[in-house]
Simulated scan of single mutants.
Amino acid sequence: MAKASRPDKAEQQALVHQLIGEIDAQPEDYHAYYELVVLLTAGQDFEQAEALAMKALGKFDQQQPAADLLRYALGNVYYQAQTYDKALPYYQQITDHKLKNDAYMMMAQSLMAKHDYQHALVWAITVQEARPNQTDANLLVADILLALGNNQQASDYYQRAYALDSHSGRAAFNIGLTAMVLGQPYATWFERAKKLDRTYFKAHQQQLTDIEKMLAAQADNQHN
């Protein structure tokens, strides 16, 4: 789960009231609890989201798939609040087959955010092997490999992601980035990335500048 899109205040309040009404009317239906936790998390009301998820978990702890869905929601509250050490145990407890790979993906993202790239890679590859045709899973493996400095392997996974989704500006940009470091042609990839996702391109332009400086410094050292 990436950053949830944030509803505006009026929309959120209306939805919150609606879901509270559903919980009051059907207190044994866990879906409304889950949806309300997701909504509060999207609105960055992390304290209320945490309290509600904890309360719901206490109520549905012995019921599957309710318990795992609520653990996943609580993990996501902590992930969005950037308290990754709190998120990880909830993802690890999930046994539900449908949710397991989503939980592994979030564990990989949490560990990556903590700069624990080696452990993040284990979980990311587990997801990628289970879902080889999922663009996000290939991108996540690639991002972690890039962070570890494994540029050739990272490039391979970015290429896979781009083959699955040729509209991914993120994949195109990073194919260009790895090509640049590996001394391969890269300009067309950056042009493509700029057209596909100008926002991503602009946000990561500093990376290009940094790598250009690093490569120039390496070239100078070789000449001296």
Rank of each mutant, 00 (worst) to 15 (best):
S110E: 05
Y78D: 07
K86F: 00
K86V: 03
L69H: 15
V77C: 05
L121T: 01
A108K: 06
Y91L: 11
A120Q: 09
P65R: 00
A103D: 06
Q93L: 09
P89F: 11
I94S: 02
H115C: 10
H97I: 05
H115N: 12
Q92M: 06
A87T: 10
A66L: 09
P65H: 02
L88H: 00
T95C: 09
Y78F: 14
L121H: 04
A113N: 15
Y78W: 12
Y117N: 06
A81I: 00
A113G: 12
N76K: 02
D85M: 04
H97Q: 15
H97E: 15
L70A: 04
L99C: 07
Q80K: 11
L70S: 04
D61H: 15
Y78L: 11
A103T: 07
A120C: 12
M112F: 11
Y79N: 01
Q63H: 06
V77R: 03
H97F: 03
Q80V: 09
K98M: 10
Q109I: 00
K100E: 02
Q92S: 09
Q64M: 12
L74R: 03
D116H: 09
D116C: 04
D85S: 10
L121S: 05
D61P: 05
Q92V: 02
L99K: 01
D68R: 03
L88W: 00
A108L: 10
D96N: 15
L111T: 02
L74F: 06
I94V: 14
N76L: 08
V77T: 08
H97Y: 07
A73D: 06
N76V: 04
M112N: 13
Y72H: 08
Y117F: 15
D96M: 04
L99A: 08
A108C: 13
Y79C: 00
D102E: 14
Y79S: 05
A120G: 12
Y84M: 13
Q109S: 09
I94Y: 01
Y90E: 11
H97T: 14
L99I: 12
T95Q: 15
Y79W: 03
Q63N: 04
M105N: 08
V77K: 03
R71Y: 04
L74T: 00
D61Q: 15
A120T: 09
Y90A: 07
M106C: 06
D68G: 15
T83M: 13
N101Q: 12
M105Y: 13
A73V: 06
A81T: 02
M106T: 04
Y104Q: 03
A66Q: 14
Y79P: 00
M112L: 12
Q118L: 13
Y90C: 08
